[in-house]
Design a protein around this nucleic acid. Structure first.
Lengths: 194, 194, 194, 194
DNA sequence: TATGAATGAGTGTTCATTCAT
DNA sequence: TATGAATGAACACTCATTCAT
């Protein structure tokens, strides 16, 4: 389910990136996420390039249009959620998997808050990316919740969608104060415990 | 508790606006809210002026800086919430007051989603406006909830802050599909009923 | 046949431009023609604005996209040719009309040399502008040549198209040395005389 | 009269190119001519390299500055005209030589149309390249025309310069429709026949 | 050596803000 | 006073050129 993490989101088998290009690509994605969530969704790409320590031309070589960068940031967060779900399901206790995944989900919700509007405007709510995103998240949330319920550590009447809206919505509403976010998550988790 | 609705947000007693100026002021505020929530927080002010049916110069006469307009829009929504709380507490049943106020709160949350980031960047989280806003909303939410609890129509263990985060967060998370918003509100209200 | 010279090439009856706006519009067109023919078709628009003595924003108010400016320059030259034909046919001797119009045509050919490629790329050879241009020029050339032939001052076996290609082609080929252009015109005119 | 076709346009005796380097050099020149005449004089060099099937670095190894490539393309066309004149004079009938050379000249005029402005801007009208070009073309045109005139198959009152301007000018004016170019050439040739 | 990734100056375009009408 | 034209700083994006692989 998780992708292999090959950089360009789409398409054909291509030669692997050169090491330096790969490093710049990753740096750019990281810089983009922090810049966009901190400065706002209208952050200049020059600022992203600056934080990544590369020239603006390099940014554009990897992401020919602003939208390509936004999509890649969003997609990476979604993929990370899917990967986390797999890893946690395989290696953590049912409860820890649930808690760990929701913690990661908060990071995703922060990214989503910054990018979602612009993405919807540009590619539409039914684009491949957003459809894929909904599917991945629903699947992951369902998995970690179901395992916790089957293990008897989570309330049986909780639905994955409720969980997502509670944690995600509170994250967005909580205006990015990290300690508030952690507290909200604690409340939700306490409420969930069987 | 509610302000008197005098147009320029701050300061000294000044002569009341001429009728046409008042009309333009109100139109601009309305146009700004719809434009900013629909087009996005980076909507051009020319678009706001166009929707209000006035020239850009007139917009700037009323709101010398872009931020002034954003603040006024936000403040108006907050004041409307306060006014609604007073009206509903005076005239509606405890439950209807709670339901009515939360419905209005969704509109506020939509505005907040669009403007909050830019406001925080510009004036800071502890500015008069945002402090005032928190206080008004907490007070209003507390009033309508407490009355419903005292009347025995709402669960006693619900806290105003939870309510706000649930409804507000879900609004933000729900990606602006109005029917989804209504459904989320219904769920929360059903859950609240004593 | 000639337009009234209203500035925006298309559309509905609109209020006449303010005097200063009209002046800037005209200056911009003039500056654009000289800049594009002197510097080349890839001249920066900032240079055009600079020569017109206005800010880049003013240029964009009048011509929202680069192409709009190129089209307007080209269209104005075509319209000038049509107007010249009318004027010369009404007021000059048949021979002087022919000579005068061909002289103006050289200016048009210079503009065309600079802009044509980009226009064709952008709007296509069958666009309204280029169709209109061909029609205006054919009509005008036919008129001035036919009158000269009827008056017995031009060879009867000359065709308008030949004339245009000779004068226009030589203009383009002559690499913009103005004295060479004049000499070529003289040769063609001597050849044409009945 | 023709150069020996040594690749780098100027200067010192250097070892002959390796076969593969020579092949890349030739491919680049061809790709440059087609790209520049088709896409326009502002075509990106990456596109040239792509069409030539080499990397951009290889292009720059052969042509360290953009201008070097433009010069080489132009020079090659001029040299081809000189070579053609020699070959046709030696092997074809006087009339066929004239016709064949003028046909080649149309190709040159197309290249010139695309490159001339930029070349003049960069190296000046009296540069070695442009002086050389004028001399080669005048010489070649004079040769093929004189031979045809001496053979009694071309009008004696035609001048080489007229021919060049007629054919070249019409080529430029004819806006690149190849069939129109052929027709213009036919007209000129019919007019030339003794 | 050939490749293509990196660079950054330059250009088209937008939009907050000012100012003449 | 209301209007909208003018301004220019800022930003998305391109491409000639350099340099690491």
């Amino acid at each position: 389910m998780a992708t292999t993490g090959s950089a360009p989101a789409a398409s054909v088998p291509q030669r692997p990136m050169r090491a330096d290009a790969r490093r710049n690509y990753d740096r750019l994605l990281d810089a983009a996420r922090t810049t966009l969530t901190e400065v706002g969704s209208d952050a200049p790409l020059e600022e992203v390039a600056r934080r990544a320590g590369v020239g603006i031309g390099t940014l554009y070589r990897h992401f020919p249009r602003r939208l390509d960068l936004l999509e890649a940031v969003y997609r990476k967060d979604v993929e990370k959620l899917a990967t986390s779900a797999e890893r946690l399901l395989a290696a953590a206790s049912p409860w820890d998997a649930l808690e760990g995944w929701l913690t990661e989900f908060i990071g995703y919700a922060t990214t989503k808050r910054a990018l979602f509007h612009e993405l919807v405007d540009a590619v539409g709510r039914d684009s491949e990316l957003l459809t894929y995103s909904r599917q991945v998240i629903t699947t992951s949330a369902t998995s970690v919740l179901a395992r916790a319920q089957e293990a008897g550590v989570a309330r049986r009447d909780a639905e994955p969608g409720d969980l997502l809206r509670l944690v995600g919505g509170c994250t967005m509403m909580a205006d990015l104060e990290p300690d508030q976010q952690a507290r909200m998550l604690r409340i939700v988790l306490d409420g969930l415990r069987a």
